[in-house]
Design a protein around this nucleic acid. Structure first.
Lengths: 205, 205
DNA sequence: ATGCAAAAATGACCGCGGTCATTTTTTACC
DNA sequence: GGTAAAAAATGACCGCGGTCATTTTTGCAT
């Protein structure tokens, strides 16, 4: 699998991605043309399109890589003894910070993640599974510890928290909450979701 | 406000929107060019852009109008005595059905609603307020009836349900749930959100 | 080394969304 | 009705994302 051909291809792909990172960061996504990107990467315009289907895909590939790195970081540094609320907050806020660091990238990235085109579904499924793999263990442990109901399917449980994370991002992009307020808001939402939206008629211990 | 000029402008705008509806429905959004749209509407290409900032805005205007109509319909036909779960389900499923009828439109529409560009923020705020105006009364009544906790701010309460609605759309666009399963899934999610994700140590009545 | 087929790179080319200087239409005033 | 200023309509034009027939490079058998 490491024929000289493959090696060169990988190098070219890296070159394109490096050029993309540099130019996107410097001039923004929309303001960077493929021609310019190709020139910076030292390849022809057509070459770019033999490595990436669309301009979007270039951004997607970059963001996916970065996020994967962050997830690995988190996975290794998570305190599995901490309350589930704390663990999830840490993960989602880290992701939030990353996604909103460059609002333009984040917007385009999330648009594609949440409402994917059929074209990129395969990549998307794969990414989603990685996501589950990160969250599921935390939720399972929490279920075992009695922190979470175990009559709720893991996908649903995961969905609730993901949904609130999406809500936070929506609120941020709509200027309802600032970056400073993000953690507090998400914490409130998570807590409310845990305790339930309807009044409990009795005292909870 | 009804000077002959205004009247003609409205007529032109209608013509453009009508052409858009026809062509978008017939050939899809991406496959419809502004030149073609302008020809069908019987105006010049530039004229289209003096009525709408971007191609996206045309779709947005169309969807907004339609959804407003649906909301009015619902507002008049809602049974305010029904359980809050039922009322919310009716509204969100109606909206879901509409948004997913044409997956391509729905995707582009939701992408813009959930992660708006700064450019269209004004329109967006306005739309969001209309949304609150529809949901708030239901939630307030539910709070008064003791169906919902009244120590949760209305925006947050609204957010929880909206978040789960977004999750449903995400799941649908990711092929996790089919249209048939939508209502059941959303019902499950809403119920879980109401009762809470953590075990209640006691009996709820 | 040489020839040759497969793979990779290329840039001219296309139709598109969007702009803007110019033209056409409308309005208001005498 | 004449006319000048304001408003609206227009399409040639631009740079873009994306395609594809052609050229260049590569890997391999001789």
């Amino acid at each position: 699998m490491s024929s000289p051909r493959e090696i060169k291809k990988r190098k070219t792909k890296k070159a394109i991605l490096s050029a993309a990172i540099e130019l996107f960061a410097q001039n923004g996504f929309e303001q960077t043309s493929i021609a310019q990107l190709a020139r910076t990467a030292g390849v022809g315009k057509g070459t770019v399109y033999s490595y990436f289907k669309t301009k979007q895909d270039i951004l997607q590939a970059f963001c996916d890589d970065e996020l994967e790195f962050i997830h690995e970081q988190l996975a290794n540094n998570t305190n599995h003894q901490a309350p589930v609320l704390q663990q999830l907050l840490t993960i989602f806020i880290a992701e939030f910070k990353y996604v909103t660091r460059n609002p333009e990238f984040g917007r385009l990235y999330m648009q594609e993640i949440v409402f994917p085109r059929k074209v990129v579904m395969d990549k998307h499924q794969e990414q989603e599974n990685k996501y589950f793999e990160m969250i599921f263990p935390i939720l399972t442990r929490a279920q075992e510890h009695g922190e979470l109901r175990n009559d709720i399917e893991l996908h649903y449980l995961c969905g609730h928290f993901f949904a609130l994370y999406l809500l936070l991002l929506h609120a941020w992009y709509s200027d309802f909450v600032t970056t400073d307020q993000a953690e507090e808001s998400l914490s409130t939402l998570f807590t409310q979701a845990l305790t339930g939206l309807q009044p409990s008629k009795v005292i909870t211990t």
